[in-house]
């Protein structure tokens, strides 16, 4: 199921790029595009004088061959200034023009950001979920669930600036913000928190539901009856049982973080994969943009497949035929 989906995703992105608004030849040539001889020459160099089908097959070949093609900035001109200019900082190979190098280089930054967001989620969201379940149907429970709904509903480009204003202007905790200086710098903290608010509700709800389900179970009563402190009952017995669905959804959350980091990257000016997508969409560097879309589609499809398989592994009633 994986390969046909990916091929059709490829066909759709390629068609959109083919009929797209920005003529790659013009993007490369800039002011010079009116010179007909130069235009034809660059068009031939880019391989755009061939029919659609041939171009698509060629593109498919480069993608499956693992080469992924070249950014238009490799050919010089306007596209290069805009596409490569902004990405500075550790971990970014700003000079490479291969699509694979660009995508993977930027992915590394997004992945580091997503890693911190996952750490925040596993620590805080699971803790809040457990708390809400233990205090089921009390004010504490309602407060936790409602505030997670609020945190997850508000988009990153609203939470981001608000946190910036609070923690930089009002209470100056952070001095330098924006940009990327490796995952262990203080600049990574705020963006990671903002990124973590998105999937927070899912994790809180799932943890809460998992714990509520085991609250009255026999093994919990046994643990209490033998005099185990409540803290350990929750940690050792309840959490362990309730964690299975939470762990599977953390997988889905990871792909969501990787594909959804573009707003956070845009706000905090982090040269991650989302920022690369927006830059190249705007500058008309279609080979790179299509590379990002395809790569993200691959992540989504793979994670969906893995989740399905994992459910099958955990629940023997699910069969595949």
């Amino acid at each position: 199921m994986l390969a046909p989906t990916v091929i059709i995703v490829m066909l759709i992105t390629f068609t959109l790029g083919y009929y797209g608004p920005i003529d790659p030849v013009r993007a490369v040539l800039g002011e010079e595009w009116e010179d007909e001889a130069r235009y034809a020459e660059v068009k031939k160099a880019l391989g755009l004088d061939r029919p659609f089908v041939i171009q698509f097959l060629d593109y498919m070949g480069t993608m499956f061959g693992g080469h992924w093609g070249q950014s238009l900035s490799a050919f010089g001109g306007v596209a290069s200034d805009r596409a490569v200019g902004e990405g500075r900082g550790a971990g970014f190979s700003g000079t490479s023009t291969g699509v694979r190098e660009m995508v993977l280089g930027r992915l590394a930054i997004s992945a580091q950001l997503s890693f911190w967001a996952l750490v925040f989620l596993t620590v805080f969201a699971i803790l809040l979920g457990v708390l809400a379940a233990v205090k089921q149907n009390t004010t504490v429970d309602y407060a936790i669930v409602t505030s997670s709904i609020i945190a997850s509903s508000i988009p990153a480009y609203v939470i981001g600036p608000v946190l910036l204003i609070i923690f930089v202007l009002k209470i100056p905790v952070f001095k330098t913000v924006g940009g990327w200086d490796g995952m262990f710098s203080r600049q990574a903290i705020l963006p990671a928190i903002v990124l973590a608010t998105g999937p927070m509700l899912v994790i809180v709800r799932q943890t809460r539901a998992g714990i509520v389900e085991v609250l009255g179970k026999d093994f919990v009563r046994t643990a209490r009856a033998k005099g185990m402190p409540e803290r350990l009952v929750v940690a050792r017995h309840m959490l362990r049982t309730a964690m299975i669905p939470v762990l599977t959804s953390l997988g889905l959350v990871t792909s969501g973080l990787l594909t959804g980091s573009l707003f956070v990257e845009q706000i905090f000016n982090i040269p991650g994969i989302g920022k690369l997508a927006i830059q190249t969409l705007m500058s008309g560097d279609h080979p790179v943009f299509m590379g990002v879309v395809l790569f993200q589609a691959l992540i989504i499809v793979t994670v969906n497949l893995l989740t399905d398989l994992l459910y099958g592994g955990l629940d023997p009633r699910v069969t595949y035929d």
């Binding site: 989906t5 993200q296 589609a297 989504i300």
Partner: peptide
């Protein structure tokens, strides 16, 4: 169902952004 699967496979905001850039020109 295959159409739905394929639409789901895309990162939705990027696909919408791509379509709207192409649409705007048309």
């Amino acid at each position: 169902m295959r159409l739905a699967d394929i639409t789901m496979a895309f990162p939705d905001i990027l696909l919408a952004a791509f379509i709207s850039v192409v649409f705007r020109e048309k």
